[in-house]
Design a protein around this nucleic acid. Structure first.
Lengths: 347, 347
DNA sequence: ATCAGATAGGTGAACGTTCACACCGGGCGG
DNA sequence: CCGCCCGGTGTGAACGTTCACCTATCTGAT
């Protein structure tokens, strides 16, 4: 058995059951207008032939979507990975299929390249990329099929209001909260090890975390040190943070994510600075490992999985107007104080 | 612009260019038998209408695959995540699309459920799941479409030879190497904090890492302690490892992966045992963070991304016999000695 | 002049579904 | 007793491609 014989189609089932193909279709799709006896016959034939519907043909004929393409940055980052998980779960629950396509900055991405990624025109798409190709992809889709796309990203309340296709969390506010917490602990100021922004180099583009951090410092009348730019990898962060940990004036560092915080933790250790005694470190994202480092990372929890789910719901709403617009129901980012933060030693 | 107007089809292009739909098809697919003048006309029409081929229709008609479905366990694990990345990269390079479907043990998975995940019968599929639903899925596919599936998993040389649809690394050998290394360091024996096996509970199913570890101990005539079973999460590992770190007799622990090793590291720290002074810890997988813990983890590097790429190549070979069978070309697992391992303090 | 062979292009069916509609018989209100 | 509606089913077209095959036209050799 299991010869590569052709798969059974709806017609084969119809013939075997002695009904029309349409009746089979009705049975498969659970239409109520089928007599019980007929249904049983069809079901039997389906079982015997091992028939299963061809999704391709289904989509082609029905025009029904039932499928979502996720355009994402490198999935080795925790945020995109968790959001993808949320999307996949939500999609699976509704029996949608999920396509994934990674936007690699190394590829040359003309607009045509991006478009070619979509299985078909109007394919519902979620974009999850904060780098340059991601931004271009967003723009392209916004022009071409604004009703069938949703982007995940950091937002401020104003941005969300202005962009009905945007989903995300106000991580600027969370960064502000973390900064205020460190200030309240007695630190004179807080330094910032920053993740790359959408334009690649620090300074341009959106950098909500950095903005929230700077705002609090300004409001408190504290010096605002130049943020230290880091790449996404731990190795890059480790290198970038060296001057910070070497400087005894630096008593608190807010890191753009937990990987950067881990690198900072190790750099501090190697530089002979005790944490949190000499140096407080706060991370971002509450990556699973963060509770188990030694000392355990103080960090900001973000429920990316819920955001992913929210993005999926919003997409459904936008594709099919009859589905109610979801209310963003995920928890706000929240500071989790663990062991890497404390008052400065001088105080 | 950008009204949700229907996307242009090959027929629309044909009409505008004043040729037949087939000629358009030829131009799109780069057939040589089209006059230059005709080609230009068609190209122009394509540009004007913003036409792009519908992949669905293409696959339906052509039977051509150009698409792979990845059935995976939880992507929050490093191994599957990295392998998925490898698959996606390889697929993208060839312009194949990638579908992802997560096998959640929490769902009830009848065989039918698993089959329903495939977009269509015979859809080329890669399975990447070491747990129970994954094993069932593997069996189902093996029965239904053995020529269009590949599984990723741990293997021994014999298993690989016996299963032309299997791709993986001999992590039993790597576990053996790590165990031997610890023994050579002077440890009397090595304990094992084990990841779950394919059957859920420890003991059944394939557990190559555990087997390699036990074999070396037996060969060296050392006592083989009962392996300690852990779940996949760090929290579970932290709980499971408590008795091990509390026991001063235990001087070396081989952990099933780096997350478990991290939990062990923290548990040891809290129990007041110094690493590697009192206790040596060796992880598995060389997860990115492992080089930056304090102390940095000794671990076994595994190039999952290459394995993913290899799986994709093998799948192509199996689906289309004309493609040569790839030779497994990835690096062998390799022990990376960092800071969590050393001779026992008593020696 | 004639014809084989190449070159350029067209025609119709097929892929596996769903959709819109037509059909048939029986129960029920008038 | 008639007509209507409705449950149950069938028919044909459509979705957007590719594939297999057919038809012109032009070339150059016989």
């Amino acid at each position: 058995m299991a010869q590569p014989k052709k798969a059974a189609s709806i017609w084969d089932v119809a013939r075997l059951a002695g009904v029309s193909h349409q009746t089979v279709s009705r049975v498969v799709n659970g239409s109520p207008r089928v007599a019980a006896a007929t249904r049983d016959k069809v079901l039997e034939a389906i079982a015997e032939l091992g028939y299963r519907p061809n999704r391709l043909a289904r989509s082609l004929a029905g025009g029904a979507a039932e499928s979502v393409t996720v355009l994402t940055a490198d999935t080795s980052l925790y945020g995109p990975e968790a959001a993808l998980r949320g999307i996949e779960k939500a999609a699976r629950a509704l029996d949608w299929s999920v396509q994934i396509s990674v936007l690699d900055p190394a590829d040359t991405h003309s607009d045509a390249d991006i478009i070619a990624r979509l299985p078909r025109a109007g394919e519902p798409t979620i974009i999850m990329a904060h780098d340059e190709p991601g931004m271009r992809a967003k723009q392209v889709l916004l022009d071409q099929q604004p009703h069938a796309m949703v982007a995940i990203g950091p937002y401020t309340a104003e941005e969300l209001a202005a962009s009905p296709w945007l989903v995300g969390m106000d991580d600027g506010k969370a960064a502000a909260e973390a900064t205020r917490y460190l200030l309240d602990l007695g630190h004179t100021t807080v330094h910032h090890l920053a993740i790359p922004t959408s334009t690649g180099t620090f300074g341009g583009g959106k950098a909500h975390r950095a903005e929230g951090w700077a705002r609090v410092l300004r409001e408190a009348g504290r010096p605002v040190p130049e943020p230290v730019p880091s790449g996404w990898t731990i190795a890059e962060a480790f290198k970038a943070v060296q001057p910070l940990v070497a400087d005894p004036e630096v008593t608190a560092i807010l890191c753009g994510n937990d990987h950067l915080a881990l690198a900072t933790l190790r750099a501090a250790h190697l530089a002979g600075r005790s944490v949190p005694g000499d140096l407080s470190i706060v991370g971002f994202d509450n990556t699973p490992f963060s509770a188990y480092t030694t000392p355990a990372l103080t960090t900001v929890n973000q429920d990316f999985e819920s955001v992913g789910r929210g993005a999926f719901e919003l997409l459904r709403h936008r594709v099919d107007g009859s589905i109610p617009r979801p209310v963003p129901g995920w928890p706000e980012p929240e500071l989790i104080v663990r062991e890497t933060s404390g008052p400065p030693s001088s105080s």
